[in-house]
């Protein structure tokens, strides 16, 4: 079989995407921003390329890992200060409204 033809056929089967292009487009794919034809070409490449499938899964696991990161610890003094401010706010809320008084 002619070498050029083989390369063309392989390129076609890989969706005419190189692995480098797949790596750069993986977020677009996950975000669902592709047209139907782009999506099909992308999936054709994934179907034949284990390395790119691995890369896609690695990106998904990265997202899942980030989503499970523990929250930042908020120091107790920040919370205490906030509770003080909350009580002041609540106290002010319970005071009679000066504008409504003046209407009386």
């Amino acid at each position: 079989m002619d070498k050029n033809f083989k390369q063309q056929l392989m390129g076609y089967l890989l969706g005419n995407f190189s692995c480098k292009e797949i790596a750069e487009l993986v977020t677009d794919y996950l975000e669902g921003s592709f047209s139907l034809s782009q999506r099909l070409r992308f999936q054709m490449h994934l179907g034949l390329c284990l390395a790119c499938r691995n890369y896609l899964h690695q990106m998904k696991y990265t997202v899942a890992t980030l989503h499970q990161l523990p929250s930042e610890a908020v120091p107790a003094h920040v919370k205490e200060e906030l509770m003080k401010r909350f009580r002041t706010w609540k106290h002010e809320q319970s005071l009679p409204n000066p504008s409504s008084d003046s209407q009386l």
């Binding site: 190189s18 692995c19 480098k20 292009e21 284990l50 390395a51 790119c52 691995n54 890369y55 690695q58």
Partner: peptide, 8 residues
């Protein structure tokens, strides 16, 4: 060209 040098 364009394929992974060190596949993931």
């Amino acid at each position: 060209k364009g394929h992974w040098a060190d596949p993931p």
